[in-house]
Amino acid sequence: MYKLIAIDIDDTLINDDKEVTPATQQALEQAVAQGVIVTLATGRAYAGAYKLARQTGLNVPIITYQGALIKNLLDEEVLFERYLPIDAATKLFDYCLENNLHLQTYIDDKLYAREENQKLIDYTNLNGTKYYIEPDFIKVVVQPTPKMLIIDDPDYLDEITPVLRELLGEEVHITKSKPHFLEIMHKEGTKGHALKFLSAHFGCELSQTIAIGDSWNDHEMLEAAGLGVAMGNAIPALKEIADYITASNNEDGVKQVIDKFVLGE
């Protein structure tokens, strides 16, 4: 019997129109009515994830910033928080400055960038985030952040990832949420760590958890969960490690998982 389901948001829970379909919404409600804990696990900032969680009627802690922040929806209590080490943040800033890369950071759930450009505009249009410009960017770089993000060509990001791993050391976790988004967090800022934390928090075994996702940043939670599910639209590497592959985000893939493994339909 599964007791906890962690669901990624973008390209998983929501379809390409950025909506949770009525059918998926009904399945979520049915799972909750049966006493199953349904949570979201996303790379998004808490503010962006909060809106969607509220719309879907969830009232439990949600996993945000790839797992660097777990916060209760009801009273906004922070249950788990990991900041990117300041020395890693400053090294990353210097590297991006030297290589003319677009870098953004999050302070108190607000998004900051050094300058306004098309990458920033496209990013914020994608997830409806408000942004702030700070030309003297080092001011925000030295403040505690759950996540920094580089936006660039996917192949170029793949090229610099090993360089950044070497530069920033073992205290950081580097992953991709989308092909052109490279995200840098504290080493414990992973959805896998967060799932383990929440499973202990709610007193259930990891074998009683389901994790559903589509991107490589979901692989830690799929590997940690009792049942790791890849969406039909997931990247091939995630499908390879999944226990089950469901339908795509445009075909109510999340509903299919809940029907099959939770409601027994």
Rank of each mutant, 00 (worst) to 15 (best):
Y2M: 11
K3L: 10
L4G: 05
I5L: 15
I5E: 13
A6G: 14
D8K: 07
L13N: 00
I14V: 06
D17Q: 12
D17M: 11
K18P: 00
T21V: 03
P22T: 09
T24H: 02
Q25A: 14
Q25G: 11
Q26R: 15
E29N: 15
A31G: 10
Q34P: 03
T39F: 06
T42H: 01
T42M: 01
G43C: 01
R44M: 00
A45G: 11
A47Q: 12
A47I: 15
A53Q: 05
R54C: 10
G57L: 09
G57V: 10
L58Y: 08
I62T: 00
I63P: 01
Y65N: 08
G67E: 02
A68Q: 11
A68G: 08
L69Q: 05
I70R: 09
L73C: 06
D75V: 10
E76V: 03
V78N: 11
F80D: 14
L84N: 03
I86Y: 07
I86E: 14
D87A: 12
A89N: 04
T90R: 10
T90W: 06
C96A: 11
C96M: 08
E98T: 10
N99C: 03
L101V: 01
L103M: 03
Q104G: 04
Q104R: 04
Q104T: 05
T105K: 01
I107L: 02
K110H: 10
K110Y: 05
Y112C: 00
A113H: 02
R114W: 03
R114S: 08
E116I: 10
K119D: 13
L120W: 09
L120V: 12
Y123A: 10
T124P: 08
T124H: 02
N125S: 10
N125Y: 07
G128M: 07
I133F: 08
F137E: 02
I138T: 14
K139Y: 01
Q143L: 13
P146F: 08
L149E: 08
I150L: 06
I151L: 12
I151N: 02
D155Q: 09
Y156W: 00
E159S: 11
I160R: 03
P162G: 08
V163P: 05
V163K: 14
L167H: 03
E171M: 02
H173Q: 08
K178V: 09
H180E: 04
E188S: 12
G189M: 09
T190V: 02
K191S: 07
L195M: 10
F197Q: 12
L198T: 04
L198M: 14
A200C: 12
A200G: 15
G203Q: 13
C204H: 05
C204D: 00
Q208T: 08
G213P: 05
D214T: 06
D214G: 03
N217G: 05
H219E: 15
A225H: 07
G228Y: 01
A230V: 06
N233I: 06
P236K: 02
P236T: 05
K239I: 09
K239C: 07
T246I: 05
T246C: 06
A247Q: 11
K255C: 11
Q256S: 14
D259C: 11
K260P: 09
F261N: 13
V262M: 02
L263I: 09
G264M: 13
